[in-house]
């Protein structure tokens, strides 16, 4: 994939800390560091996978980009304009350009609203279309995501999981955004339905030249779907590489451990499973130095003291580890 010069989305040292309040006076006693110093460039038309175990901050990162959470520090640029410091009112135009597909398609639809009305609402908020125009556009959208006209007047509970996710997709692409953040968009679905939804996402991407930020814990799906993969651990970025490269040649010990955990459907082939000892450290009190050193099989003294730098070790292959040269 040829990459244009200007990134569509650019993150510079984005941080998101949640204050922990306690005591009688509700004073801030510390912070949960959900996202720690993430820098990333996303180019138009690509799909970036963000992977990591639960609690590593991947969803928070997605929400921070969308502006659902305010970044504690760092800058977010979208189409060369900084959006992280925009007041809520000016953000509306950017909200049109960035949309999100949620994990649980049932929970993300208002149970008391008909599907037609839910989709039309997007146009009510952002455009001045008439009722007839909206209706026509919604019917068109339903068709595009593989639903039928008669679904227009149904309630969310009348749909299956896969159909609901199609509605979620229809809502996300309704305003022709350029960036869609898929937050575990297929994780709640059956494997067979997953495949259909992924195919739909790919078709839509080709048609509208969409850029995806695909947040997932399913490495198999990410490999299939994304051009580049970003691995996160405890709020920090650990490794970023084109997917074929990452899967063939993982450099960071955490990525290696993650990849070794993918089940392989070949019973004969013996593979080495790297097991990580211990639990994920508390993000309110992350270890000093490299956040991964407590569980890392190759950690040295240096890892306990110094935070590894984010460096490019091969073209387009970034790693944060002292032991990788």
């Amino acid at each position: 994939m040829s990459q244009p010069q200007q990134p569509l989305l650019k993150l510079e040292g984005v941080k998101k800390y949640y204050p922990i309040k306690g005591g009688i006076l509700q004073r801030v006693q510390g912070y949960v560091k959900a996202v720690e110093n993430v820098s990333l460039e996303v180019f138009e038309g690509e799909s970036i996978g963000i992977v990591g175990e639960s609690g590593c901050g991947k969803s928070t990162l997605g929400r921070t980009i969308l502006g659902l959470e305010k970044a504690t520090d760092g800058k977010i640029f979208f189409k060369n304009q900084e959006i992280s410091n925009l007041p809520e009112k000016k953000r509306k135009t950017f909200k049109k350009e960035m949309q999100m597909i949620f994990q649980d398609p049932y929970a993300s639809l208002d149970p008391r609203q008909r599907i037609g009305a839910a989709l039309e609402e997007v146009f009510v908020i952002h455009t001045k279309m008439t009722k007839a125009e909206r209706e026509e556009r919604v019917l068109q959208l339903l068709k595009e995501v593989g639903l039928k006209e008669e679904h227009y007047d149904r309630y969310p509970h009348e749909f299956s999981g896969g159909q609901r996710q199609r509605i979620g997709i229809a809502r996300a692409i309704a305003l022709n955004p350029s960036l869609v953040i898929c937050d575990e968009a297929v994780s709640a679905l059956d494997v067979s339905v997953q495949a259909q939804i992924i195919k739909l996402l790919k078709d839509i991407q080709e048609k509208h030249r969409l850029t995806y930020l695909f947040i997932s814990h399913d490495l198999g799906v990410v490999r299939h779907f994304c051009n580049r993969v970003l691995v996160m651990y405890l709020g920090s970025t650990v490794e970023l590489a084109p997917s074929h490269e990452l899967y063939a040649n993982p450099l960071h010990p955490y990525t290696k451990a993650l990849l070794s955990a993918i089940p392989r459907p070949k019973p004969g082939v013996k593979k080495e499973r790297i097991r990580l000892e211990g639990d994920l450290p508390n993000p309110a009190n992350p270890p000093k130095g490299c956040p991964f050193h407590t569980r890392c099989p190759i950690a040295t003294e240096r890892c306990k003291q110094e935070r590894p730098e984010w460096k490019e070790v091969a073209p387009n292959h970034y790693v944060a580890c002292h032991e990788v040269q």
Partner: peptide, 8 residues
């Protein structure tokens, strides 16, 4: 949250 993401 989805409505907020849509800009409602």
């Amino acid at each position: 949250l989805a409505m907020k993401a849509l800009g409602a």
